[in-house]
Design a protein around this nucleic acid. Structure first.
Lengths: 243, 243, 243, 243
DNA sequence: AATGAATGAGCGTTCATTCAT
DNA sequence: GATGAATGAACGCTCATTCAT
């Protein structure tokens, strides 16, 4: 059994190496940049071996996406545990989102690929629902904090708006901004010198618009951002700084 | 001469059919979903004929993108001419953006594809700058309205924020939300029953956060939305209703 | 009829323009470098018009070859008329051959192309025999001079050797050398600094070997070369000098 | 291991079959006559298999050329080792050249193709220099024998002529004659009944012209030709006889 | 006679996937 | 379980040739 475990460890390790390489290839050249031949060659395994791990190319991409979502979910969970008032906690989520995309741009890119390529036909329904559940839980965390805020009197949503709508707003804002940042190289020419800062300000302003206490006029969220970064995401933050 | 015109009309018409089909293929299967063979086959023309219209696959995609951007730019320009206070005019832009993506979802999808595929190597610099200028002008319209609002005293931006940052916020919000809407089919399960309404509310709330007069609490922007739709974009609105 | 003649002149003129361009294209990029589309485009005629002149691509190449051979035949004929002893006259042929290949390298190149591409299947037997007759007459001129030399006692061929064998030797030597010169760019590195001079010396030595009077030791053939160039081929020689 | 060797043998063997077929196709229809589709079809392998052996069409042609040059170089080297006076040794080279072109006419044709087609862009500089070095060494062998002849007093070159010039003469004569023989089917009609014999006589006469001892009048080079054929190139000679 | 849009067989090449060893 | 040779459908693209106008 010890033997088996070692074997299993080896297999898991190789699987990780495949995924790591695949992610880099995907980031480098999109869906076409990822090739089974290339993986086999660069990893110095035979193609057959790669196929022993993943039954087809699409499954690799799905695995990549699952890994990405898992990783972000983990960061979101740690963020949600931040002790403070509801808006501080939602700020922690914001920190997590930004750190994630800056620290693991390849992971983020995978999500974009998966949205534009038609992969689903070759995949099992199980895979698909696995990813949806990940998405679901991420949303749940954010909505939960909003609900907490409402419960604690920090926030009151107008009629016809549910916490999920606000969560969707945060999600859209981040996803849209990070997509544009990742794929546009003319932002400075458009007059946007520091897009990440702009995202934070815009989100903050939106939350002010919802009158989520405490307002950004009464609280230094920039400083909070730094504090969360170094307290909750010490490792990630340091890695980012050193890059 | 009548004869010549008929031929030319036929050609133009076929070009449109090629682009329409190409757009659908792109929307269906991404960059790989669009194939020259497929176009020729489905349109029942020879490959040579397709190549008489477009010298390579990339040029089709570029043409698609240019068409998309032109069309939206046109709608933005009409929106910007709406007579009213600055926030009403920015609402008109919002109407344009939403109508555009709902009316021409394939057009919108093309933009996403073009962001992730590496098409540019096969294209001239002229093409590239043409598209960038389109983007630039769209941004310029939005920033211009924001500047007008500032000049007219409807809006005052905090220190360190320029109109472009706000415009970027609107762009991100829309682009992100519409991307998610277009590629996710589980929004209802996530609790977001009407994502388009949610976007409007979130954006409106952000503008409230910037204290852009008149605040949504003092003005019925929902009604304005309807009015702009039926006045400025009568045709588009009707088409949308009938679908 | 005057009208018809003008028309015919126009047609002939256009045919020449087609052939000129075709020859340049052939020289530039070999068999593949010659394209019907390219001809039509650069000459600003429609493809149909080109096909009115030549029924297929191969016919153009054949025409090119015929033109080449005609031109050289003309030069050979003028050379053969040089007044002098037989070896002087054969020298005149040598001058013609060298001037031809140096002055019209594209023409020479056509001959090489036609030897390596399989064009004949698409051509009529008539074309083929036309070319062969050209070749025949060129050979005939050279053999004739040799025969004259024998008749005049300048030369006596050993048993088993006919004038055509010697003519073949001259032809081979020239064709081989000029081919190598045209397609090899490393002759200087191989130690051959002036290949054209080398050809002349080698041929002259071979004729000495046949004891063709007057031997090169008794006659300044280099000076004769100059004289023939400037007397018989004044125009060609001048053109060459000015290039 | 026996197993592995068998597989490798099979692969090597197929590679040879590909090259053989490719050579025939090239000889038949020039650069265009060689097609990857055609190879796959005639050999009844899939296209992918062909591409497993050669990464592109050009590499096949290069391989063909290298094989050709290697083979002739080998024959030249064996010829150069013939024990005898310098002119006997140069005769051995002549035997090698003729046997080569008669025994492997397709090989010879490859060289002509490669001279006129623009293959080099798709190939590495290494390939190119490999071929040039082959050419260089062939030339070196011939020049070396000439130098030996000079050193041994068999031969004295006139002023202004270097051994390489004479070697170039031999090369031109052979290359030209063999090219014409290979591509012209009307030699008998032109009065050249045995062109190979004619080449030998012409070359011999040229060497007589250079007064290279022993002169053909004092030595039976025809008989030497037979002797070298059967002694140095016994295998090749026999193969030729039996064809 | 001139046009040029239309054709379609053909090309070189790629790559996910299979399966005998 | 590992290997990698073999497959073959698909791709983007070219171009000589035809023929309705």
């Amino acid at each position: 059994m010890e033997n088996l475990t070692r074997k299993q460890r080896e297999i898991k390790e190789r699987e990780d190496r495949i995924l790591d390489l695949a992610r880099r290839m995907l980031a480098e050249g999109g869906y076409l940049g990822l090739s089974m031949d290339g993986i086999a060659e660069q990893l110095e395994y035979s193609k057959g071996t790669i196929y022993n791990h993943f039954p087809c190319k699409e499954e690799i991409i799905i695995s990549l996406a699952v890994e990405t979502m898992d990783r972000r979910l983990g960061m979101f969970q740690r963020a949600a545990e931040f002790v403070g008032r509801s808006r501080e906690r939602i700020s922690a989520i914001g920190v997590a989102a930004e750190l994630f995309v800056r620290l693991y741009p390849h992971h983020f890119f995978v999500e974009q690929i998966i949205r534009s390529a038609s992969i689903w036909e070759k995949t099992t329904e199980k895979r698909r629902s696995l990813m949806q559940s990940c998405e679901h839980r991420c949303m749940g965390i954010v909505s939960g904090i909003i609900r907490d805020g409402i419960g604690q009197g920090d926030l009151k949503l107008p009629d016809g708006i549910v916490p999920e709508d606000v969560a969707f707003g945060l999600w859209s804002q981040c996803f849209g901004a990070y997509s544009i940042i990742a794929t546009s190289d003319s932002l400075p020419q458009l007059g946007i010198s520091d897009p990440f800062v702009a995202v934070r300000r815009n989100i903050s302003t939106m939350l002010d618009g919802y009158a989520w206490q405490q307002l950004s006029s009464d609280y230094d969220y920039q400083q909070l951002f730094e504090r969360i970064s170094s307290e909750v995401f010490a490792d990630e933050y340091q890695t980012l700084q050193s890059v």
